[in-house]
Structure formats: C-alpha cells, structure tokens
Simulated assay, not measured.
Amino acid sequence: MNIGIIGLGLIGGSLALDLRSLGYQVLGVSRREQTCQTAIERGIVDAASVNLSLLAAADVVFICTPLDLIIPTIEQLIPHLSPSTIVTDVGSVKSPIVTDAVKIWPNFIGGHPMAGTAESGIDAAQSNLFVGKPYVLTPVENTTPETVKIVGEIVRSLQAKFYLCRPEEHDKAVAWISHLPVIISASLISACLSESDLNVLQLAQNLASSGFRDTSRVGGGNPELGVLMSTYNQEQLLRSLFSYRQTLDRLITQIQQGDWAALADTLQRTQQARPEFLASKDL
C-alpha cells in the first residue's frame, strides 16, 4: 500500500518513520525542499517532493498540517487523487474539519493521534511515538465501513490505542482534557506575572520547581497552536471554561469562608478521580 503524508513535522515525520518500517511505501510532501531532502536522507520516506502530484499513486493520504491548512490542502490535493483514495488528517479539532472535508472529498475520515512532544519539525520525528497512545477516528454517517477498516488497520499497526467516536463527541472530550488545560495553564503563568512586587516575582521564579513545571507546561507551548485550537473548537472550549470558572468560584468561596471540610471533600474527590484519566498512560 502507498501512503502519502503531507506535512513532515513531528507528527507527519513520526508517522512516516513507523509506517515505512512496517513495509508501507511512504510518499512525503513538504512546503520546504530542505525538509524533503532531510526526510529522504534520514530514511523517513521513500520519496519526497514539494509538489502534491507525488501523491497520485497514494492509496491513503494523511494530512499533517496545522488546522487552518487542512481544508485548503484537500482542495489543492483533489486534482491529483484517484477517486478511491482515502484522505484523513491528524488535527486536534474534528467537527468543523470533517464537515467541510466530506463536502469536497466524500472519502475522508477525521483522525487525531493524541501524541506529541515539545519539539517540532522534521528533526523531531521519532519512531514509536504512537505506541500506547490514543488514536481517534471520527467517521460520520456516509463514511464507508471499508474506509474505517483500512485506516483503522493502519492505526492499529502503529500499536496505538484505537478509538471511534463522532466528531462532536471528540471535540467535547478534548476540550476538557487538552484544550482547557492549555488555557488554564496559560492563565496560571499570566497570573504569576501580575505580581507587582518585582522582588517577590523574582523569588517565585527562583523557587519554581516540579509542581509549577507540571502545571504550566502546556501553557508555555506554541501560541499559534493555542489560538488555532481556540478558534476551531471555540464552542466546546467555552463550555468547559465556563464550567471550570464555576468550579473555581466554589473553591474560592470555600477558602474565603474557611470551609475546610468542604475543601477537603473536593480535594479527596479529585484525588480519587485523577487516576481514571491517566489509567495505563505514562505519568
């Protein structure tokens, strides 16, 4: 099977590495000629080009671009595809992407591997990035069983944890566990910077250790990704943010009123609930 990958950064490059090692013929497309050369030299792909026409022979195409480029990329790709070619993506928001994509390419299925690192670019590509990590496919009513089967088999071959759900379910879920934490983490850093006493701010920066590192990590990520996530999943992100604000207000009230029993109850419940979100995952 020939697999095309558009966007040879961390996710696209890592997909290419693993799929090529599994015996697939991997064809890569990047906007930069240097990236194409690096991908070939490192053995990440069998062939690479800045021209989408390379993917005319592809049976399945993975679009690994930023969210705002997925639909324009599909539009540019269509003239080069066979009608039987399956197109999928790796974007972190599904409903708006899937809705638009199936209108212009019915043989599209949304996808989202929940894997990554703080690094980016072709040099960050690594083998086994998806092993044990969730990988979601989001078929809709008109998605054929054959499409689900073919892409599902590819996902399983990566040793990822394979899930199926509706696009809107996906977006609600990731709003809670991926998008909301980015905004909360960013607000934490921003709140710390509001300290008006420069000596105290400097001391806080000097004393910050593992707790601050863990809770602030995603808020210190790529700003472009955070804005795109918020733009494309605005409704569900706001839904989770409003709920979070209500929860935070309750905690503030408990502390203001010295209701330590209620605070202890809240912290006990969160202590018990956290493992359910992290079961079988790297901590």
Rank of each mutant, 00 (worst) to 15 (best):
D249Q: 07
V155S: 03
V87T: 08
I44L: 14
S49Y: 00
L8N: 00
N51H: 14
G12T: 01
P139D: 07
I86M: 08
I70P: 09
G220A: 12
A16L: 08
E235H: 13
A125K: 02
R166A: 09
S240M: 13
T88R: 04
L19H: 04
F212I: 01
A101H: 01
D249R: 04
C165V: 15
Q246G: 14
E153C: 07
R245N: 15
S82C: 04
P66F: 02
E75V: 08
T231P: 07
S127N: 11
I154T: 00
S230A: 15
G258D: 11
T65R: 03
D171M: 09
C36P: 10
D265T: 03
A191C: 14
L22I: 05
Q254N: 11
A58I: 04
A47L: 14
E168L: 04
S82Y: 00
V140R: 02
S216I: 12
A101M: 00
V218N: 00
F108G: 00
S14Y: 04
L193P: 00
I97P: 02
Q37N: 14
S230P: 05
V136Y: 00
N107Y: 06
A115F: 06
S157I: 02
P83V: 07
A264F: 03
S30H: 08
R20N: 12
D197R: 13
G4M: 03
A273K: 13
P106N: 07
S243R: 15
L164G: 06
Q25G: 13
G111Y: 04
I6V: 11
V200K: 10
Q126C: 10
L238W: 14
P134L: 06
F212C: 02
H80A: 06
P139Q: 07
I44K: 15
A57Q: 15
P181G: 10
I150K: 08
V151Q: 01
S243E: 15
V148Q: 02
A175L: 11
V87H: 01
L129N: 07
L158T: 00
P79K: 01
P72G: 01
T144W: 09
I63T: 01
N199W: 07
T117C: 13
G111D: 07
E168K: 05
A264H: 09
I40H: 10
F212Q: 00
I109K: 05
I255L: 12
E75Q: 10
G23Q: 01
V45I: 14
Q256T: 15
Q254I: 08
S95C: 10
A39W: 12
L77H: 00
S14H: 06
A56K: 08
N199K: 14
T85G: 05
P72R: 01
I252S: 12
A47F: 11
S157N: 07
V155F: 04
Q246Y: 05
P145G: 01
F62G: 02
S120P: 05
Q254A: 13
I177E: 04
S210A: 11
I71T: 06
I44F: 15
I183G: 01
D265V: 01
L10A: 05
K172P: 12
T147H: 02
C64Y: 04
E41I: 05
L81H: 10
S216M: 11
T253S: 03
Q254K: 10
G116V: 10
I11Y: 06
G226T: 13
